[in-house]
Design a protein around this nucleic acid. Structure first.
Lengths: 91, 91
DNA sequence: TATATATTTAGACAAATATCTAAATACTTT
DNA sequence: AAAGTATTTAGATATTTGTCTAAATATATA
């Protein structure tokens, strides 16, 4: 409950940034390394790393080390929580 | 397009606050005056007024003057936009 | 018309956020 | 082992945000 609220806080906080929403849209198409994600934006790698951290903390993405790369993937199951919240407003 | 992005920015910004999400949940049940909404929170009336302004700017709520009261209503059609965005992630 | 009620506007302030550069860490290759 | 590549961590800074109190505006009532 308080846990649920915190979860929703983290999710909405993560979604409240156009760059992070774009990262999710990229990852929706395929897994990408941190560097590949950074290359898609005119933002420094440390800043992108920070965005990835926020998305990961909200559980919207997962990461896995592959050699010297870190591969990020989207976790669509969390979107289900947002979906359910939104659906309570349908009429 | 850029308009769409701004709209999404406003919507997600509005949703990125637990108090504002609670206001939406209250209004989902019935229309309320600004004062009635404020009474539901331990937050000053001016702060609630500010939250209402952010929700109204995102078009998530509408307001109508009724005598000396201002009655707020939820606008669920905007939730449809969020819903559509979320749905693009459904696998 | 004077007073009370409802709400917003204005202005201030502390906390959170997005960004940057520089440095640290971890892995790979030569 | 040294050098190069990938990524994060640390620390700084400017902007945004949520909150407050005080004042302004608008309507209703006595």
């Amino acid at each position: 409950m308080s846990k649920y609220i915190n979860e929703m806080n983290d999710i909405f906080k993560a979604l409240n940034d156009a760059t992070r929403r774009e990262i999710l849209e990229l990852l929706r198409q395929k897994d990408l390394s941190a560097g590949e994600i950074a290359d898609a934006f005119n933002i420094s790698k440390p800043s992108i790393s920070h965005h990835l951290d926020i998305l990961r903390r909200a559980d919207l993405i997962t990461s896995e080390k592959k050699g010297q790369f870190i591969i990020y993937s989207i976790n669509t199951t969390i979107m289900e929580d947002v979906l359910q919240w939104i659906l309570t407003f349908k009429k």
